[in-house]
Computed example of a mutant assay.
Amino acid sequence: MFLGTYTPKLDDKGRLTLPAKFRDELRGGLMITKGQDHCLYVFTREAFGELARKVASAPLTSESARAFQRSLFSGTDEQVPDGQGRITITPELRRYAGLKKECVVIGAYTRAEIWDAQAWHEYQQRHEDTYAQAQEEVLPGLI
């Protein structure tokens, strides 16, 4: 389970240090792929395998399914954190997410997300006012 917000820096070699709280779950390896809203998704191998099976089961006769499959699978990189908990983010994934030096890593329960710090700040500002409305839609009558 991934929770919390962390602010690691990307080094000159494209390496990012994973939050200490995430390292045990990701120690055996992880999959980094393009996420929505120009962030990167970080999955455990097991969680990505489940996602991949669902995506791969989409009908080949669907043009949008084929496009999504191609984008997802061609844009995914497998990593094993080094002894210091660092992973290397490929130039293509850094470009997609607009990653510079300042980054934000957030827990999104089933995955971690890597954001450019400025992009995360702007995303939060755009969605702050709709949080209560979204809460009512996602959790009707529960809170």
Rank of each mutant, 00 (worst) to 15 (best):
Arg53Met: 07
Glu137Met: 07
Tyr96Met: 04
Ile114Val: 10
Leu139Cys: 03
Leu18Met: 14
Ala117Ser: 13
Phe68His: 13
Gln133Glu: 13
Gly14Ile: 02
Thr7Ala: 10
Cys39Tyr: 02
Arg94Phe: 03
Arg126Lys: 12
Arg111Cys: 02
Thr76Ala: 15
Gly85Leu: 01
Leu3Asn: 06
Ala20Asp: 04
Asp11Ala: 06
Gly49Thr: 08
Asp11Leu: 04
Gln84Ser: 10
Pro59Trp: 03
Leu51Pro: 05
Glu78Thr: 12
Phe22Ile: 08
Asp11Asn: 09
Glu136Met: 03
Ala97His: 11
Gly49Glu: 06
Ala132Gly: 01
Thr61Pro: 07
Arg111Val: 03
Leu26Ala: 02
Gly75Arg: 07
Thr88Tyr: 02
Lys13Gly: 04
Ile106Thr: 13
Ser64Glu: 10
Arg95Met: 12
Lys101Asp: 13
Gly49Ser: 06
Thr130Gln: 08
Leu26Pro: 00
Ala117Asn: 06
Tyr109Ser: 11
Thr61Gly: 11
Thr130Ser: 04
Pro81Tyr: 15
Gln36Tyr: 15
Leu72Phe: 06
Asp24Trp: 00
Gln133Gly: 05
Leu40Met: 10
Thr90Glu: 02
Gln133Ser: 11
Asp12Glu: 15
Arg111Gln: 13
Val55Ala: 14
Ser64Ala: 08
Ser64Arg: 10
Gly75Ile: 05
Val42Leu: 10
Tyr96Asp: 05
His121Gln: 15
Gln125Lys: 09
Gln125Pro: 02
Phe48Cys: 11
Leu3Pro: 01
Glu78Ser: 14
Val104Ser: 13
Cys39Gln: 06
Phe43Trp: 06
Arg94Leu: 04
Gly75Gln: 08
Ser57His: 13
Asp37Ala: 10
Cys39Phe: 01
Leu3Phe: 11
Glu128His: 06
Ile89Gln: 02
Gly49Tyr: 06
Arg53Thr: 11
Arg53Gln: 13
Tyr109Met: 14
Ile87Met: 00
Glu137Ile: 04
Ala47His: 06
Ala108Cys: 12
Gly28Asn: 12
Phe43Glu: 01
Lys9Pro: 02
Thr110Gln: 08
Gly75Glu: 07
Gly28Ala: 07
Leu30Ile: 08
Cys103Glu: 03
Ile89Thr: 03
Thr33His: 08
Arg23Ala: 01
Glu63Trp: 09
Gly28His: 06
